[in-house]
Design a protein around this nucleic acid. Structure first.
Length: 279
DNA sequence: GACCAGGATTGCT
DNA sequence: AGCAATCATGGT
């Protein structure tokens, strides 16, 4: 089926960012991405139009609800011009002109989002991508050329040593296995978060060992697609602000906090574009 | 060979 | 409540 949007949408930039994660199957030449659906099939989404006149070809959906899911993953219902307008006359104006029309794409798996966030804690991007790939190669499965995160049951049954062999730290292995176990046991229900408020979700998530503020905020941004998160503990964001603001040191948490009221309710876009600015 | 990376936990004041 | 040590490895 074909979909067109009544507002600007920069699919190229969205694909470029997706392509930065080797777990994703992105073809920049064909302008398409494969989406492993939880129902078991793989959907292909291809960009046909331009940023000014965006349209898409969506193939292999098994029903209308899957089409809605893909629309949700890619935020086809969220206007982006209002986001850039909000940052006019702020100290991020240039950044938002540069990235105007760039959507916040959700991860295709809530569980995968959480695992990836844990794996990315404290590590440089290159190495965290290596670890994430080892994780899916070892326990997930490849289907039609795209990697699918494993079921939490499979990870819950692993031993710390199994992940240590993949060069996970012992603690990171404990987090990954422990959280998978919590999901299997029903103590952590990622699906119910869909209908909850940001603060309530964060409060519940950080009670679990291995999930701190940064991880919860990342989950909200990239798992649920929430528009108003800024993981202030993130070194990358601090370095990006240092560059944008031409400082000779990273800004303090207090200096960043001053800007939060100005940037809201689109903090996630500020974070997304700041990350893009240093990639 | 330090020091830092898209942090979180633990134990000590 | 706030700080330092700890974690594992790769890049600079």
């Amino acid at each position: 089926m074909q979909i067109s949007l009544p507002f600007n949408y920069d699919f190229e930039r969205a694909l470029e960012r997706l392509a930065g994660d080797p777990v994703n199957a992105v073809d920049l030449q064909k302008r398409e991405v494969k989406i492993p659906m939880e129902e078991g099939n793989v959907i292909t989404l291809r960009g046909l139009g331009t940023t000014d006149s965006p349209s898409f070809l969506l193939e292999n959906a098994i029903d209308e609800s899957q089409v809605d899911k893909v629309k949700s993953f890619f935020h086809f219902d969220r206007r982006l011009d209002t986001v850039s307008d909000h940052f006019r006359d702020t100290n991020l104006e240039k950044l938002f002109v540069e990235h105007a029309g760039t959507p916040l794409i959700k991860e295709f798996s809530l569980y995968g989002t959480l695992m990836k966030s844990i794996i990315h804690q404290q590590l440089n991007l290159a190495f965290s991508h290596v670890l994430t790939m080892r994780f899916v190669e070892n326990s997930g499965e490849n289907q039609d050329g795209v990697w699918r995160y494993p079921e939490p049951e499979k990870i819950a049954a692993l031993k710390v040593e199994d992940l240590r062999q993949l060069q996970f730290s012992g603690r990171k292995a404990e987090y990954v296995i422990g959280l998978s176990r919590a999901i299997v046991d029903g103590n952590l229900d990622l699906n119910k978060f869909e209908k909850m408020e940001d603060e309530e979700i964060i409060h519940e998530m950080v009670a679990h060992r291995g999930i701190g503020p940064w991880t919860a905020q990342n989950f909200l941004m990239f798992g649920l697609g929430r528009p108003n998160l800024f993981p202030i503990a993130d070194i990358g964001l601090q370095n990006a602000l240092k560059n944008i603001w031409a400082m000779d040191r990273k800004p303090t948490k207090e200096e960043i906090m001053e800007q939060i009221p100005i940037w809201k309710p689109y903090l996630s876009y500020a974070a997304l574009y700041l990350w893009r600015s240093i990639e």
